[in-house]
Structure formats: C-alpha cells, structure tokens
Design a protein around this nucleic acid. Structure first.
Lengths: 261, 261
DNA sequence: CGTTCCCTTGACACCGATCAACTCTGGTGG
DNA sequence: CCACCAGAGTTGATCGGTGTCAAGGGAACG
C-alpha cells in the first residue's frame, strides 16, 4: 500500500469561534451527517447547562451511576484506569465535541474514571434528553451512533499501536489522529494545534514512560517531523509523519454517512 | 483493594447443548436482561441462516460494506489488523454468542478484518431484521446495546493490560476474562474451557511474540495457576490467577440491567 | 527566593524480540 | 507402509528497546 498524504482538507472546519457550548459537537456531526437546522438547534437546546472543571478534577468516577451525559465543550479530558501498582493508562483523549459517556443508563456503574487534563468546560445533559433526541430525529440518532462507533475504532487503533509498534511510530500515529480529530471540530489550523498535555500524560496514553517519551519527541523533532513546545504541536512534514505513523484515516470514518435504504 | 475470588457462579449456564444457532447469544443476553419468551423466539427466528466457515477464512474483510450482521454460533473468530510490516494485532476474540459487526449500516466500510480462528459456524442476519427487533422490543434493544458496550469495555481492559503490564499478568488477565465470558454462554465448566487457539494467536492478541508466550505459559504452569494442553485450558488456582491478573470482573457488567426509569 | 511542576540527560538493568535449531504430531502421497 | 512435509510447541543465545533511578535546569508562582 502506498502512503500518500491524506489531506483531510475537505472537512468543513468551524471557522468562527465557539459561541455556543455545542458548536464543536455540531461541527463534528455535521461533517458526516445531514443535520437539519432543527437538529442543530435541538442539540444546542439540550446543552445549555455547562460547568467549569478545574484540571485533574474527575468528571466521572468509576463506580458512579452518572445521571448526565457529559460533553466536552472546552479543554481536554481523558479516560483513565489507575492500576494497582500506581501506574496509569489513558484509554482515550476527549477533546471539545466529544461525549464522555454516551451509553446512558444501560450500564450501571462506570468502570473507569474520566478526568480533566486542563481546566475544562463540560456540558451536563440529562440522559432522557439525548435519548429522546436520538429517537425523534433519526439523522441525529445515526450521527450519535457514528460518534460512538468511531470512538471504538480509535480504541482499536490505539490497541494495535501499543501492541505492535515502537515508541516513535506510536507517538507519530497519535499526533496524526489528534490532528485529524482537532481539524474536524475546527481546532487545528495550518498543520498545528494546541496540545495542552504534559509528556507524562502522553506517556500514560501510549504505554510508555515520561522519560522515554521525552527522548522519542526529540527524535521526532530531530527528524524534522514536528515541533512541540509551549503546549503547541506544529507538524512540519505531514507526509513523512503520516508515513512514519502508517496513518490511514479510513478508520475515523470521516466520509459522509450513507443514507439508510 | 482486596482481591477476593470472584466466583461468577451465579450466572445461569446454558446446561443443554446448543440446539439452535442463537442459544449462546440468548443465554448471554438473558443473563443480564429480562427477555421474554417472545424476545428469545424473535432472536432465534432471525438467525436461521447459518454458514460454515473454515479456519482462516475471513468472515468480513476490511473495505467491505457488510450486508449482514454476523453472529458466532460455533467456534472462535478474531478481529485482526494486519500491519504493513507483516505483524498482526488481534483486537478481540469472538466466541459463540458474540456479534461481529453490530453497527449495521452506520459505518460504511469495515476498517478491519474478522477471521475464523477455527472451523466455525456463523449466522447471517440482515441488518434490517436486527434493527427492527431492537426498535420493537425495547428490552432486547437494551440488551444489544449492553453487548456492544461490554465489547468496548473489554477493549479498554485489553488496552491497559497491553500498555502497562508484563507478559505474565497480561496472559493471566486474558484467561480470566475468557473464562468469565465462556461461562456466561455455558461453555466453561469446573474451572476449564476449550481454548482452540495456537500460542501464536495468543501472542497476536497480547502484543507479544509466540516465543515469549511459550515461556510465559510455562511460568504460569510452573506456578500452578493453569494447565494448558491439547487446546484445553484448566485453571488450577482461580484465586491466585485472578490475583496475578488483577482481574476485577465489574468491567464485564454482568449484573442484571437496571430498568429504565 | 523557595517551591513546585515540567522537561532534560545519563547510566544501567531487564523484559521481551529476534534468530536459529530441534522435537513431535498428524497428514499426504508414493 | 514409509517418506516427506507442514504446523505447532520448545529451547538456547544474543540483542535492543524501554524502564528505572537519579540528578539537574528552567519557568511559573506565591
């Protein structure tokens, strides 16, 4: 398979700043689904209740039975499992427009934590509202299921990266993925985006140690693929970065949803 | 946290042999949801079309747009990603009663392969039938979403095992998980179950090499935790195995589904 | 101006990969 | 019936990627 540069440029970025809490989510879902103006308004309607979360604050804790569906409005969060030996594994980064727990009331208790990685703004939406929307608005319902399935595909991509690839390629792949996702919600511009996380967090996401992440970042910088400083990632050479990462964005399913027959 | 032995014994095993293709699935869903006799019959009705799949046969290939939802009836299968360097990562084991692709028509193309690990029998169910069932039978619909969410939780558990734990603990955890899942569908008895896979497959699932899996299995055997030969796993000391694996089955969400308010 | 957080660097240890060879089994065909 | 072969499991020797431990530097902040 040849590795051409996947431009991802056809995705409509949300040009203007996020005025309403759900703008990022609406941008994401609109990129793949045919949401009507009504659908969008409905989404905005249910996400009025937003709350500020300071860094490190758990948004949902394992063992809780969350009453709300949470949507990241601003800032970053992560799904984390703290293991008995004190090490931590991050199983997902949550960026603006992402759901923390779309599963509603099906599962009883949360089996992992979700913590804020930065000061963040989070929308609190009662389950019933989301479920009602999904029921009454088929296109929106499909878009929500799409979001859920893509999260799962991302998880699988993390798995094979961590299971089968070395630190250099793993980190390169994460940067490609994050760039695509940030672009989808209008938060990446000209080959760069804000990456407001420490090297230790990066390590916990990639199954590495902070020390080794540090060395690997230096290698990526030295090879002219990226720049990373002051919490901002600049991708210097997208073609070579994607090649190193073996990044193929089909798993993100960014094409428009097919209509149901 | 103390590690007591999680008995998992309260789950109703399907005592009699699987007479109908969907018996394993019905057993699994009945363990958590309150399916009516009608619900069960409906499941059996839609899964009459089963086909034999020889070992190594792809059940679904990446790039395809599957017309059917596939359910494993007999035998084992796996989600796999073949990487460019020839290595393989397995992201899920599919055992009788598991869905291969519950996502229906939401995602266009499959982004990974599903291959038979043994000679297998697979049910072919048109999407519309499953979706109709989920719509018209709320309790069944909830059970299907439960199955999907548990698959995702399993994936997260794989991620932190592979990301943060050594070969010994990783493999121990997989054995605990498989035992719980096999028990749920009535395919595990008195601390043992058929494990019809090679050490190489095990390696591809745990992000290891076959050589190292071999050595690690010897360590597990030497410590008196398991026996494994002729494609059958016997768990000799469940308490110590679960302790080594740090296995806590809450992530499998085996408690009965709460009723919607 | 001390403290804390994050990044950086070096020395060393070790887990698991790699390579290679050997055994055992079952199957296949002459 | 036997020769041959492929697939699976096993073992040993060696290598290298990554973890671990430890120390130091810079920036932000009270």
């Amino acid at each position: 398979m040849a590795f051409q540069c996947f431009a991802l440029g056809k995705v409509q970025p949300a040009a203007r700043p996020a005025a309403r809490p759900c703008d990022r989510l609406v941008a994401k879902l609109s990129a793949v689904g045919d949401l009507s103006a009504d659908d969008r308004d409905a989404l905005h309607d249910i996400s009025r209740d937003t709350r500020e979360m300071p860094v490190h604050r758990p948004i949902i804790r394992a063992g809780e039975r969350p009453e709300y569906v949470h949507i990241i409005v601003e800032g970053w969060a992560a799904r984390t499992e703290i293991l008995a030996d004190g090490t931590r594994q991050i199983t997902a980064f949550l960026i603006p427009g992402d759901f923390c727990n779309l599963h509603g009331t099906i599962l009883g208790e949360m089996d992992h934590d979700i913590v804020a990685l930065t000061d963040a703004k989070v929308a609190f939406v009662p389950h019933q509202l989301i479920e009602g929307l999904a029921r009454e608005r088929p296109e929106l319902g499909r878009a929500l299921r799409w979001a859920n399935l893509v999260d799962e595909a991302v998880l699988r991509a993390w798995l094979w990266n961590i299971g089968r690839r070395n630190a250099y390629h793993r980190i390169a792949h994460l940067f490609c993925e994050l760039h695509a996702r940030m672009q989808l919600v209008g938060l990446a511009e000209d080959g760069g985006f804000d990456l407001p996380i420490t090297q230790e967090v990066l390590a916990d996401a990639r199954g590495l140690t902070a020390v080794h992440v540090n060395r690997t970042l230096q290698a990526l910088r030295g090879d002219g693929l990226i720049e990373l400083s002051e919490r901002r990632l600049v991708i210097r050479d997208m073609v070579r970065l994607q090649k190193a990462a073996r990044f193929d964005p089909t798993y993100l399913h960014l094409e428009r949803l097919a209509q149901p027959e």
